[in-house]
């Protein structure tokens, strides 16, 4: 079985978000980058399949050279090889086109992406890959089992869980639940050493085109100070929520 895990390289969750160039670009200065958390859940699930089904796990990112440490980390976690499609994508549609073009050549059985990235929060790329390749698609995926050519998966829905079955090839949008937080693999020294020897191939981009572009960024307006209410004066809180905030 051939598994592709799509890796988005995102600012650490604690990063302070700032913008430069007239608020038109994200300020990467001093920002630590990590594997998008949803992708990390997906990668861990893929490594389990590598162990159980001798699957080959490939990781891929569409991005510039700055993404390579993130790909190396994926190799240290246990992926067999990595690809970087060399471009700075403008939007999710373009990323999906690049990944789909690569998948047409490589014929993966299973493509794992994150439910959404924590930077652009598009929740676009996995569905678009599935649409472009005409593969089955399960997003918000909280469990996945593969037997031969057949997959069973669960999807978190508003207020519950939906269980589905389908044939491969399949694209999933991974999230917590697929594996637990405690299952995430922290690379050890051996993994890190091995990762240096593993192939990381840079491939040129195709002629994909974006359908949107970001003109500018802004931060939310600063918030007013909290109104503190005495613990003995809960009537006041109820009064404020009813008459001032009008939410109860």
């Amino acid at each position: 079985m051939k598994i592709l895990v799509c890796i988005s390289h995102v600012p650490d969750t604690t990063s302070k978000i700032n913008f430069v160039n007239d608020e038109s670009a994200f300020d990467t200065n001093g920002v630590q980058f990590i594997i998008n958390p949803n992708d990390e859940f997906g990668l861990t699930r893929a490594i389990w399949m590598q162990q159980k089904h001798q699957a080959e796990v490939t990781v891929l990112t569409v991005g510039d050279i700055n993404c390579e440490p993130t790909l190396r980390k994926c190799l240290a976690i246990g992926a067999n090889k990595a690809f970087r499609i060399d471009m700075q994508p403008t939007d999710g549609f373009q990323v999906a086109q690049e990944i789909a073009a690569h998948c047409k050549k490589e014929s993966y059985d299973l493509i794992i992406a994150g439910r959404e990235s924590i930077d652009y929060n598009g929740a676009m790329v996995p569905g678009m890959i599935a649409g472009l390749l005409n593969y089955n698609f399960v997003t918000n995926c909280t469990s996945l089992e593969v037997e031969g050519n057949h997959a069973t998966a669960s999807r978190e829905i508003d207020g519950g869980i939906e269980n589905v079955s389908c044939e491969l090839p399949l694209v999933i949008g991974a999230q917590k639940g697929l594996v637990e937080e405690k299952d995430l693999i922290i690379p050890n020294m051996r993994g890190i050493m091995q990762a240096r020897q593993k192939p990381l191939e840079v491939i040129p981009a195709t002629d994909s085109v974006a359908k949107s572009s970001i003109l500018k960024f802004e931060k939310p307006a600063p918030k007013g100070a909290v109104k503190l209410i005495d613990a003995d004066n809960i009537d006041l809180l109820i009064d404020l929520l009813h008459n001032e905030a009008k939410v109860i």
């Binding site: 999710g92 549609f93 999906a96 929060n121 598009g122 929740a123 676009m124 790329v125 996995p126 569905g127 678009m128 599935a130 649409g131 472009l132 698609f137 997003t139 918000n140 978190e156 829905i157 508003d158 359908k211 949107s212």
Partner: peptide, 23 residues
């Protein structure tokens, strides 16, 4: 932005070759 609507949006975008802005 329901779970179902976010699920179908990228598929609709591909099928109509449309631009898609979420959130």
């Amino acid at each position: 932005s329901s779970a179902n609507a976010k699920y179908i949006a990228p598929l609709v975008a591909v099928s109509l070759s449309a631009g898609y802005a979420s959130n």
